[in-house]
Design a protein around this nucleic acid. Sequence first.
DNA 1: TAATGATATCAAAAATTAGTAAAATATAGG
DNA 2: CCTATATTTTACTAATTTTTGATATCATTA
Lengths: 224, 224
Amino acid sequence: MKKILIVEDDLDIHNLIKDILEKEKYMVLSAYSGLDAISLIEKNDIDLILLDLMLPKIAGEEIIKKVTDIPIIVISAKISTEDKVNSLTIGANDYITKPFDTNELLARIKVQLRMNKKEENLVYKDMILERTTHNLYINKEKISLTKIEYQILEQLLLNPKEIITKTKLIVLLNSNNNNNLIYTKQYDENSLKVHISNIRKKIRNITKAEYIESVWGIGFKLYD
Amino acid sequence: MKKILIVEDDLDIHNLIKDILEKEKYMVLSAYSGLDAISLIEKNDIDLILLDLMLPKIAGEEIIKKVTDIPIIVISAKISTEDKVNSLTIGANDYITKPFDTNELLARIKVQLRMNKKEENLVYKDMILERTTHNLYINKEKISLTKIEYQILEQLLLNPKEIITKTKLIVLLNSNNNNNLIYTKQYDENSLKVHISNIRKKIRNITKAEYIESVWGIGFKLYD
DNA sequence: TAATGATATCAAAAATTAGTAAAATATAGG
DNA sequence: CCTATATTTTACTAATTTTTGATATCATTA
């Protein structure tokens, strides 16, 4: 869950933005002055800042200069090119003028957060499948997976409530070895069974909990 | 010197943008169709793409989807929120509508190039990769790298927690030699593993610590 | 509940990939 | 044109994964 800080002293606009973001499941932090903002930034691990320029006490520009490692989108009533260029030059990542379009704001937020669904880790119960490293974690303990084991678990975790058919998983196995042109259901099923068995064994080594359920005659799914 | 690719079929606009960029000392590459663009992107190490959406042969949107590792600023006559949101969602980093203000364009270009953090030295644990000299330092000791060795390490250090796939690295090798037009996975993999081996040997000469981890069947990453 | 077919596990064989050294080729600088 | 350096190819060994086949277990239904 991404944390977004809204820095805006106009209450109406502030709450409007807050509602929009919370509907999109962002965690929202609120600052109504530049000083508030600085203090919140220091105490929290914030992913993105939405910043008004005209603020009491400390001007927005000061915040842009101070904050170098968190992306900042300026949302301002100042529509002049000079203001845009200035903000962007001193460190802002994007600049939106009021009144703004909700969908455009959300799209520009996503750009800054780089919310590529492809890169998000997959979580199911105590399991975390790290997609960038191909590691599986259960209760913080690391399990290293082979390529095929990873692919099988990825399929299961992408649709945690669905049954993944044996056929679908076998297609996955065969997409690795281009040489194996002959599809023999019997042998490939055997191979799949061994992979599933090996994954279960690796998980058994660190926890009693069962994760992969066999669906008789069809395939596999994660336990509810 | 940063390389910017302009993808725009309207000659007047194309040359206008080109003039602006060249005055700012950017190196400009020109594509007048989507197909041109794809081919130029494959053969050159481009830092930023300025993209018109309405193109002959291949639509701009296709290019956005295809190119995932170069920042893209869309410059379009389409002013609707839907178009903006769509482009930003499928992968564009910014969206400017025509007619655009020159200074704002330049400021937004700088934002994208800055975010690409291409100039900072890369640090990981005891390693410092100096991007201006292509030298690697481990505990202040200098290791000089060849061009390819540098590029491989750069990829690894740019995303220290991620697996860099063999395919990605092989594309890198091939982008150097334009003569090697035939992509033979087997031979290129051989070459890649020799480079990795050579990097490891150079590091071994000055420290026992291991830095590059092999991810079986997929690629390489830095040790946690 | 016995028969049948599907699933689970194990260990060894087969296949694939990784790592290294050395030779061959290409490139750059004097 | 020669030399030094960088890169690619070749050839081989080592390490790891995947498949196979034998055997055991489990679920379903007649």
